[in-house]
C-alpha cells in the first residue's frame, strides 16, 4: 500500500461518492484517472484491505429501538439458551459474562412493542427465567472514534 492508496482510503472511509461515476470523483481528488482510481480500489477490495463499501445504518436514525438485555441462566444450559437468542436477527451481540447475570445480548427492533414481544418469546422458548430489559436511560458518553470491540448499541 503506497501513499496514493492511503489517500484513497482516507477519502472513501469518510465518504464514498454518491454520484454516477464515483471513481471519476475519487480520481479527481487524488490525481488519478477514473480507471486508475477504480483499479486501486478494486485491488484493495480483492486483497481484503477493504471489507465493504456501503451504508452504516443507524437504529436511532431509522427510528428503531435498541436495548441491552440480560439473563441469569443455569450454566449447564447457557449454550442452549444462547442459541435460541442468537436466532433472532435483531440480536447482534450475545455474550456470556463472568457474573450470576451471565448472558448479555443487544436487541434492535422497529419499536418497543417488537422488543417486548421478542423478549416474551425468548422467555417462553428458553424457559430460563426472565429476560431483563436494560434500555439506556441516560447517556454520558459515546466515544465514536474509539475502536472498541463490542457493544455498539
Amino acid at each position: 500500500m503506497d501513499e496514493t492508496d492511503k489517500k484513497i482510503l482516507n477519502l472513501i472511509q469518510t465518504g464514498f461518492p454518491v454520484a454516477a461515476r464515483p471513481y471519476a470523483e475519487i480520481g479527481e481528488k487524488t490525481g488519478l484517472s477514473e480507471q486508475e482510481a477504480f483499479g486501486r480500489v478494486k485491488a484493495m477490495f480483492d486483497s481484503g484491505v477493504i471489507r465493504r463499501i456501503g451504508a452504516s445504518f443507524d437504529s436511532r436514525g431509522l427510528g428503531w429501538t435498541s436495548t441491552l438485555c440480560a439473563m441469569n441462566t443455569a450454566p449447564e444450559r447457557i449454550g442452549e439458551v444462547a442459541a435460541i437468542i442468537s436466532e433472532y436477527p435483531g440480536v447482534t451481540h450475545n455474550y456470556q459474562r463472568n457474573h450470576a447475570m451471565n448472558l448479555w445480548f443487544t436487541l434492535i427492533a422497529p419499536d418497543q412493542e417488537a422488543v417486548d414481544r421478542t423478549l416474551a418469546e425468548i422467555e417462553a422458548r428458553a424457559k430460563s427465567g426472565k429476560a431483563h430489559n436494560l434500555p439506556m436511560k441516560r447517556k454520558f458518553k459515546i466515544k465514536v472514534d474509539f475502536k472498541f470491540k463490542e457493544e455498539d448499541e
Binding site: T14, V18, R52, S56, K147
Partner: peptide, 16 residues
C-alpha cells in the same frame, strides 16, 4: 434523513 451514519469503506483490522 440520517438513516445512515456513514456511507463509505470499512477496512479490515480497524481495531486499535
Amino acid at each position: 434523513k440520517k438513516y445512515y451514519r456513514r456511507f463509505g469503506a470499512t477496512l479490515r483490522h480497524q481495531k486499535a
